[in-house]
Write a protein that binds this DNA or RNA. Structure first.
Lengths: 249, 249
DNA sequence: CGCAGTCTTGAGACAGATCAACTCACGTGG
DNA sequence: CCACGTGAGTTGATCTGTCTCAAGACTGCG
């Protein structure tokens, strides 16, 4: 269960305010929005308590989480993996605003990969308030359109890309989101398991493992332990992924 | 080239207005929006003239179109299919509001599958005006979030679904959008080619053809000519697609 | 009526899934 | 501090589904 935190002064809210569009004026609306938000923490593996009635917007103040679709058992429970288990739709990190629709519309669940601080807004009330400040509303809309664009681009890639390209793309994407690097070397720790990676890419854990091994043998990445990854050259991976200046090279 | 139509009284705009949220008041803002829109027609195979500078929102008043990503040659030109050709990201039909980003962000192009009437809005100016009426802005946002949701769901399916499931899903989706049917029998004409279908599903035309043949032999669909399709039972197809009551069934 | 392009059908090749051990990392308990 | 056990990760062998390459049949058009 998510641990609601009334005593601690709502960690994360101030960061949320800071992320609001600057042109929003004195912040009256921002205050209103913050008043709507409920701060919560999730421990590793914990899941955002589902709400069958309302769509929610969740602001991830810190940590990493995955958005999974129906069927994933809570960690520690049975259902090892007989059926597909739970399909991972997306990974989210600090700063992301995640749209979690009510269960009725195809219950998606937000599961913490690391300890998370988050702020939960009821979608409709958030928008009611945001209407008071079109800049905020527009900011959210722009984010959504970008998210849609990204999702479409990903979808296109998923359509007909090899396992190698998918893994490379995944790593490039993680490098960008976790370290901001878009080329050159970089290193980071992956918060998710091989299974999560495979589920999000439509591959099996075996294939994920094999592809990582090949990249390792090609000298493009180095791994340490289960999660640490060092990329020799993000640009080279991006090329394998079919991004950027792929023109014949 | 898109044929701009100044003389005809902007066919499509009235329908666009009608589709705006009802609670928007007298329609002052709606008038402003309509003033921003440029009506255009596209003939079959024609492509919306690309604009490298501005993001656009395109309202499809009538007809059907596909949103494709870089590389697709105009119909009648060379480039049969040597390289991947053009990946189809989505199909759109009358009533859809399509977000077409500027070329810089990964040029997507809107290509007419049938003669189309459409209304083109510059994205930023549309939003500027829409800020005058939060209800409109919110309506657009809601649409976007739903589109994102649909895109994610599709992405998930693309990830690990068989060719049969993808074709079945495609047919169910088309049945819903073209006839409104979600179960029972229905019939319609597909406005797109096998190649378009394959491109949108990440399959080859041969596989599309084979899967349709199997569905035909199974008595689930009947085809006539190149485009006409009759579905015996949408629910049965939905089950194959992995939608609905798939529980062990 | 004939042509061109789309669609269908077939045979073979290959990527990734599946099934099955094995190894290692990391947390636990001695 | 080190030994141990569990579950994650890796690796290998095989099998299936889809792509590829190659003809052939039909649709729809001029």
């Amino acid at each position: 269960m998510a641990t609601l935190s009334p005593p601690p002064p709502a960690f994360g809210l101030e960061q949320f305010r800071a992320a609001l569009p600057a042109g929003t004026g004195e912040g009256r609306v921002a205050d209103g929005l913050c008043a709507l938000g409920e701060a919560a923490q999730l421990a590793r593996g914990e899941e955002l308590a589902p709400d069958p009635e309302t769509d929610r917007l969740v602001w991830l103040a810190s940590g990493a989480a995955k958005l999974v679709a129906r069927g994933a058992a809570p960690p520690g429970a049975g259902t090892p993996a007989g059926p597909p288990g739970g399909q991972v739709l997306a990974f989210h990190f600090a700063g992301d605003l995640v749209s979690v629709l009510r269960q009725k519309d195809g219950d998606f669940r937000l599961v913490a990969l690391t300890p998370c601080d988050l702020v939960i807004f009821p979608s409709d009330r958030f928008l009611d308030h945001a209407q008071g400040d079109p800049a905020v509303l527009r900011s959210v809309l722009t984010r959504s359109l970008q998210a849609l664009h990204r999702s479409r681009t990903r979808m296109m890639q998923m359509g007909h890309k090899s396992a190698a390209a998918r893994i490379a793309d995944f790593l490039v994407s993680m490098a960008e989101r976790l370290t901001g690097a878009t080329r050159g070397p970089c290193a980071f720790a992956l918060p998710m398991s091989r299974r999560d990676i495979g589920d999000s890419l439509g591959l099996t854990i075996e294939t994920v493992s094999r592809q990582l091994t090949e990249l390792r043998e090609a000298g493009l990445v180095a791994t340490e332990g289960r999660s640490k990854v060092a990329i020799t050259d993000v640009g080279a991976l991006a090329r394998i992924a079919g991004r950027g200046g792929s023109k014949a090279g």
